[in-house]
C-alpha cells in the first residue's frame, strides 16, 4: 500500500476554478512532482511537464450497471504512466465540468492493475460560490460532484455577500454534510488540505472526521439529517430552518440520511441488511459511511462505500469511557429514509 501512487480527483462545474486550483497545486513549493490527467487538454495552460490528455471514455463493465462503470481512458493512461514510475510522486485527475465522478472513483476499485498500483486519495470538488445555488437547480452533474466530494473548495467567495455565502454553504450541507469545506478566493487553499487526505482509507476515516460520531447538537435518539421533517403534498422542499447559524435546506432529490443508534448493533443483522440495501439502492446511493459498535466486539467497525461497492473492517478499540454508538450516513438520490431508518433500527443489538 505504501508504494501506491496517490491519485486526487479534481471535479467541479464549468468555470468554478478547477484549473486555477490545479495550477496553484503545481506551482507551490511543496517539492512534490505530479502527473496530471486533464480533459480540456490545450485549452488552458497547465504549468507542468507531465500532462496527459484524457477523453472521458466511460465504459460499462457490465451493460447498464452503474456500479460496474469505469473510465476506460483512465485505465489506459494510468497503465502508460506506471511505465514512467519514478518521474512523479502523485497523480491528479482533472475531470470536465460535466463529468460524473462515480466512474472515475470506481475505476480505482474495479480494475485490478489500477488498484494494485494506485490509490484514490480523495475527490476534491471546486464550487463557484456565486453560481452553485443555480447550478444545483439545473445541473445534475454539479449536484453529483458536491454529493461525491470528500473536500469542497467553495471558491470565489469575494463575489458574494456573507448572506449569500451562508446560503450556498447551507445548500452544500443539505447534500453533503461531511465533506470538508474550504472557502477561498482564487482557489487559495493550503495544499495540505487538498492532497494526502487518504479519504478512502478506513484507518483514516476517524482522523479526518473526529466529530463523525458526535451528535450534531441535537438530542434525538435516532435522528436523520432532516430531523424527521414531514413533507406534505404541498411542500415545495425549498424551505429551510436554522441550526447553529447555518440555514438548513432540503434538496429536493439529493439528500443525506444520517442515523444514530446510541448503543450496539447486531452484526448478524446489520451486515445482511446493508448488503441488501446497497444491492437494491446502489444506483441511488452515491456515498456511504459508517462507524458501528458491534455487540461483544471491542473494536469499532468502520465502513464506507461508493454506489454498490462497500469496504469495511474492524479498526481501533473503543477507548475506556468512550460511548459505544453506531452511526451510518448515506448520500444519494430519492432515498427512502423511513425504510432505511426502520431497517437500521431493526439491527439494534
Amino acid at each position: 500500500m505504501a508504494d501506491k501512487i496517490p491519485v486526487t480527483v479534481l471535479t467541479g462545474y464549468l468555470g468554478a476554478g478547477k484549473t486555477t486550483l490545479l495550477n496553484r497545486i503545481l506551482t507551490e513549493p511543496h517539492g512534490q512532482r505530479f502527473a496530471v490527467i486533464v480533459n480540456e487538454f490545450g485549452e488552458v495552460g497547465i504549468d507542468n511537464d507531465l500532462v496527459v490528455g484524457a477523453d472521458e471514455e466511460v465504459f460499462e463493465m457490465n451493460n447498464g450497471c452503474i456500479c460496474c462503470t469505469v473510465r476506460g481512458d483512465l485505465i489506459r493512461i494510468l497503465d502508460g504512466l506506471m511505465k514512467r514510475k519514478g518521474k512523479f510522486d502523485a497523480i491528479i485527475v482533472e475531470t470536465t465540468g460535466l463529468a460524473d465522478p462515480a466512474p472515475v472513483a470506481q475505476t480505482f476499485f474495479m480494475d485490478q492493475d489500477v488498484s494494485d498500483k494506485t490509490k484514490l486519495d480523495a475527490v476534491v470538488t471546486v464550487a463557484d460560490a456565486k453560481w452553485l445555488t443555480d447550478r444545483l437547480k439545473d445541473a445534475p452533474e454539479a449536484k453529483n460532484q458536491i454529493a461525491f466530494a470528500d473536500v469542497i473548495i467553495l471558491n470565489k467567495i469575494d463575489l458574494v455577500s456573507p448572506e449569500e455565502l451562508a446560503e450556498v454553504e447551507g445548500r452544500i450541507r443539505a447534500i453533503n454534510p461531511y465533506a470538508m469545506i474550504h472557502k477561498t478566493e482564487r482557489a487559495s487553499v493550503d495544499i495540505s488540505q487538498v492532497l494526502g487526505r487518504n479519504a478512502f482509507d478506513l484507518e483514516r476515516v476517524l482522523e479526518l472526521e473526529p466529530a463523525f460520531l458526535e451528535d450534531d447538537g441535537h438530542h434525538h435518539h435516532h435522528h436523520d439529517h432532516d430531523h424527521d421533517h414531514a413533507c406534505g403534498p404541498d411542500c415545495d422542499h425549498d424551505h429551510h430552518h436554522h441550526h447553529g447559524g447555518l440555514k438548513h435546506y432540503h434538496d429536493e432529490d439529493m439528500q443525506s440520511v444520517a442515523l444514530t443508534i446510541d448503543g450496539e448493533v447486531d452484526p448478524d443483522k446489520f451486515l445482511p441488511w446493508v448488503n441488501d440495501l446497497v444491492q437494491r439502492e446502489g444506483p441511488n446511493i452515491l456515498r456511504s459511511k459508517g462507524i458501528l459498535a458491534f455487540r461483544d466486539e471491542p473494536r469499532r467497525f468502520v465502513f464506507q462505500g461508493v454506489h454498490m461497492i462497500l469496504d469495511g473492517d474492524l479498526q481501533r478499540e473503543w477507548k475506556p469511557g468512550e460511548e459505544r454508538r453506531s452511526k451510518i450516513v448515506f448520500i444519494g438520490r430519492n432515498l427512502d429514509k423511513e425504510a432505511i431508518r426502520e431497517g437500521f433500527l431493526a439491527c439494534t443489538a
Binding site: C67, M110, D276, Q304, M308
Partner: peptide, 14 residues
C-alpha cells in the same frame, strides 16, 4: 458489487 469488504484497500488480494 455489494459488500466486497476489503475492496477499497485491496492491499494484498489473492
Amino acid at each position: 458489487m455489494a459488500l466486497r469488504f476489503g475492496l477499497f484497500g485491496r492491499k494484498d488480494g489473492d
